[in-house]
Write a protein that binds this DNA or RNA. Structure first.
Lengths: 239, 239
DNA sequence: CGGATACTTCGGCGGGCACCGAAGTTTCCG
DNA sequence: CGGAAACTTCGGTGCCCGCCGAAGTATCCG
């Protein structure tokens, strides 16, 4: 490659991309975008492959630094290595050509309702997405808590709003406090970054939302509905 | 894949990643990160493959939406499709594990000087990188033109500073005005986004910098050195 | 018009890799 | 202690894909 003085850059980049260039491994990573740790068997079942096949793929992904693993007894728990990895997968997913695989309509009623639940509210790695995530970002913008004019930023009143909710951001680390993440059902941005993560964690612990089943979909509780109405003026039926 | 109700998401993501999962195609994309249009032959020569091989790869990349092509007579010019593509490749390159392929020291004198020139100043898609790009970002931060506290943003004085240079940003479009891009030689962020691009374009048109040869490396001119000293207080020998 | 150049198409070759099932190891639990 | 469950290792199979060179087409230029 690269004729005479190989940067070896291209090989590295290709190797990294190659980790995501397999249906099964991509399926693993998308599943792990829910931010939780899955066992090898769960992932194998989810992707529809044999356990031995999953083992091989997990070895590759862990060795490549995309996944972190944690052994507990006979279980191998695996999760995305860090926020950077999640952001990479997200940006890749956002760049998928919309017309590629004709967005097949769901076949069964249960599949339809599951999809609907996902579109309504779900987690995206460690923050909120779906109609709920977008409406939160919209409401925060409208109330002057977020500023999109020159790059996404948290305004002073946004910072104090978070503080009023007892949400403290981790000390300005490598990760940006606020980041925009394109929602692939809404095609509009929602709130990511450490503030988005903290807000999502708060929503769980305060009982605003709960998981539906084992997937990424979440449900807005009654308490959550009134909290969002109170704190952000979001109408009772956000979708 | 995915057992019963295939999201078909995983397949799409894998297909997109697969476009970058080949040494030759990755080499093409990294070369195109200089933001210019290359001919098929140039890319083939750069990657060290036969012309027929390059044709096949270019077909894939164009069909996949990563590259845009423009035919002129017997030439096939190809460039990165958009800024989003460039950002994807950048973020992929930034996530490459540092220790992967032992950063081989250059063999020849000319290779060493070429690498040195790249480290000093180069283009990164449509903005400036290398020690020059990093020192510009640092100087802008120090003078209060950029604000990193809550996400990267251009301050009011930063906006008027740009205006004083006759740099007008495109109307707030999809692309963020300022974005941080991790520099892989300096391991520190430099300025990307539409403001970074506009600044880079201005630097070219004002004669602050010129291309060295056919690569991504650029050279700071005397005029550029004094302009940067005047406008940003950057010392004469930025490295 | 005729040679040179840029690109494309095609056939064939070779290697890598994703898959599975069977057998083995470790851990859990009754 | 013994069975079940989670995971791993190993061998074998088949397919996909990247590569090349030769021949074909389009374009440029003298």
């Amino acid at each position: 490659m690269n004729g005479y003085h190989a940067h070896a850059e291209a090989t590295d980049l290709a190797a990294l991309a190659g980790l995501l260039a397999d249906d099964t491994r991509a399926s693993f990573c998308l599943a792990l975008l829910d931010g939780r740790a899955w066992t090898a068997t769960e992932l194998a079942r989810h992707a529809g492959v044999a356990a031995s096949t999953a083992t091989g793929h997990l070895n590759l992904l862990v060795a490549g630094g995309l996944l972190a693993e944690e052994r507990q007894g006979r279980h191998r728990y695996v999760r995305l290595a860090n926020a950077g990895t999640a952001e990479l997968i997200e940006s890749l997913a956002c760049l998928v050509p919309p017309s590629s695989s004709g967005r097949t309509a769901p076949r069964s009623l249960s599949a339809a309702s599951r999809r609907q639940a996902m579109a309504r509210a779900r987690t995206c790695y460690d923050h909120l997405a779906g109609a709920l995530g977008v409406s939160i970002a919209d409401a925060m913008t409208e109330r002057g808590l977020l500023d999109w004019d020159q790059g996404l930023a948290l305004t002073p009143s946004g910072a104090s709003w978070l503080a009023r909710l007892d949400i403290t951001l981790p000390p300005a680390a490598r990760r940006l406090p606020v980041r925009s993440c394109l929602d692939w059902t809404e095609r509009r941005p929602h709130l990511a970054g450490s503030a988005g993560a903290a807000l999502c964690a708060h929503a769980f612990s305060a009982g605003w939302i709960t998981r539906i089943g084992s997937g990424r979909a979440v449900m807005l509780t009654d308490a959550g509905r009134s909290a969002l109405h109170r704190h952000l003026g979001i109408p009772r039926e956000p979708g």
